[in-house]
Design a binder for these strands. Structure first.
Lengths: 157, 157
DNA sequence: CCGTATCCATTCCGATACTG
DNA sequence: CAGTATCGGAATGGATACGG
């Protein structure tokens, strides 16, 4: 067997499994648009400027993965609206982490006059950060995984 | 021109720019290993099981993007050690968001007896969540971007 | 307007051989 | 052991034609 892609989805690692579903260029951008309220095939296609066939393929994959779900676009319409499922909604944090990192690290000095703020108060967002359930901030190397039995019972903070 | 890939890196969107650098299968997994302390070409190759040529290409790309940096593996060695830069370190949150999402949404019921905990106390990690600088929790649709001048000055909480 | 199918170029990936 | 070079197969992506 030659050019066969490894199946990341079978590995025992959350990151690998996540990447097997959303680890390509377009999927996350489609999901971003879905969060913005886009629903229709043509809207995705126009906003993202990607080819129709691969949009079609990506949408199918995301539906199969349970991230998007289709419903009739309007009463009795044969066309589909693509909306986020619960599982898809939970990707919001992933999207935002990427967003913050991109805005802060992928633009040259002064190229970007823009801040992410809460819609009404215009208060800037906090940078996402790790903490324990009780709210103690920790670094990226201060955690491991243990079996559920070994974990400290929820402190119910 | 036919099969020319669109350059996401030029779009005026943090997510798109971020994806143009780390939006492929292997890059984030390489970075994950880098966080775990892997440094050597062979270690990455063995852990990830990817072909040497594409590992080579990915490492080069990540170095170019300023996410990894090379240094001599040991005194006077001709070989490289690959370590995270500051920019790379800041990817930790992205990695963790993906990790949490994957662990919670990409395993079947009971397949996973594992929790992410703080190393010493064994206290479970909190799920990443959005909030404003002053600590108010908000949802994924409660923010926008505004020019820096329009944002509320930091409340210094 | 929605979505599929087809054609083709490019890129990605795995295997392997090779150099230092 | 580190890294490059080459090959072939697979998947990705763009353009476009086509049917519903």
């Amino acid at each position: 067997m030659k050019g066969k892609k490894t199946d990341l989805g079978a590995l025992d690692c959350g990151i690998a499994r996540a990447l097997s579903v959303i680890g390509d260029w377009w999927s996350l951008l489609i999901i971003r648009d879905a969060f913005r309220g886009e629903k229709r095939f043509g809207e995705f296609q126009k906003n993202l400027g990607l080819a129709r066939n691969i949009l079609s393929a990506r949408l199918k994959k995301l539906v199969d993965a349970g991230i998007l779900r289709t419903e009739p676009e309007s009463e009795g319409s044969a066309y589909n609206a693509y909306v986020l499922t619960e599982k898809g909604e939970r990707l919001g944090v992933v999207l935002l982490s990427l967003w913050q990192w991109g805005e802060e690290n992928c633009f040259s000095e002064g190229e970007l006059d823009r801040v992410m703020v809460e819609r009404h108060s215009k208060e800037p967002l906090a940078r996402l950060s790790l903490s324990t359930q009780s709210g103690r901030a920790i670094g990226m190397r201060d955690f491991t995984t243990v079996s559920k039995a070994e974990a400290l019972p929820a402190t119910r903070q």
